Amino acid sequence: MTRPITLSETMRAALSKDPGAHKYGHGHALVLSGGPGQGGAARLAARAALRVGAGLVTLVAPPAAMAEHAAQLTAIMLRPLPDSYALRGLLRDDRISALCLGPGLGIQRAADMVPAALWGARPTVLDADALTAFAEDPERIFSQIHQDVVLTPHPGEFSRLFPDIAEAALGETPRLSLQAATQTAAERAGCVVLLKGPRTHIATPDGQSAYHDATGDMAAPWLATAGSGDVLAGLITGLMARGMAPFEAACTATWLHAATARSFGPGLIAEDLPEHLPRLLREIGVT
């Protein structure tokens, strides 16, 4: 049964922090970045993961991009990562609890890095370039996906990964609802699928489904800005790093994303979302 996503006491409690825990008790998120000049999206995702409560966040990038990131980041750690072989080595550290791949990663780097990330069998968000990189052969990535993965396509990316399902739901004569399409896609991919839009749909392979309606009185039109999807990917990653299950992390992040945008209001740009999140968390009683 499909449920609407609303703020619940369970969600509020999950967002709070145990006052006796140390930073590794709240997880270590790893965000992969692309080359020089492509790092803004990954920095947005990393900042969101840190703001939503991950104990540590490390941004890993090609060596040539390190100076660019170092000039703009302080609380987020940096590490050079030349290739997928190095990523496999890094993932031998079992303190790394979640990964985010896609924002600003670049198509070629995504094609190299995603299989290595999935080999690591950690909770993982695949967004943007990490989805587009496999548009020509989606089964290549579906065969490697595990149950702790969240795919976060917008309708265009959804159409590239699931062309037949998209045609049935998004074509001129729709034969399938967007929720049913998301459910079918989750079953095919073998993981959580989050189809972004004013009404966001989320589904798992085993039949759980939810939606978030950001229309009418609950509209968040200022989310239609470059980088807001990267922030959503980071929020999901940060919540999974803290131990939240993929479906619940996707639902919680979707609610926070829209609620933060509504709280901030007109003039919002993507950088504002992580910075305004603490105010929203206080307003809803998170401790």
Score class of each variant (00 low, 15 high):
L7H: 07
A13H: 13
L15P: 02
G25I: 08
A29G: 10
L32G: 00
P36K: 04
G39K: 00
G40I: 02
R51Y: 08
A54E: 01
L59A: 03
A61D: 01
A64R: 10
A70C: 12
T74E: 09
L78R: 04
L78V: 06
P80M: 11
L81I: 09
Y85K: 15
L87P: 00
G89C: 14
L90P: 03
S97K: 06
S97Q: 07
C100Q: 05
G102T: 06
G104T: 03
A117P: 01
D129Q: 10
T132V: 14
E136M: 11
E136I: 09
R140P: 08
S143E: 14
I145T: 10
V149H: 02
V150T: 05
P153A: 05
P155T: 02
E157A: 06
D164T: 10
I165L: 11
S177N: 14
A180I: 08
T182R: 07
A186D: 03
A189E: 03
C191G: 06
L194S: 00
P198Y: 02
T204I: 04
G207I: 06
G207K: 09
M218F: 14
M218P: 04
A220L: 06
P221W: 08
A224C: 13
T225M: 05
D230R: 04
R242A: 05
A245W: 06
T254P: 02
A261G: 11
F264T: 11
G267E: 10
L268S: 01
I269M: 13
A270D: 05
L273A: 06
L277N: 01
V286E: 04
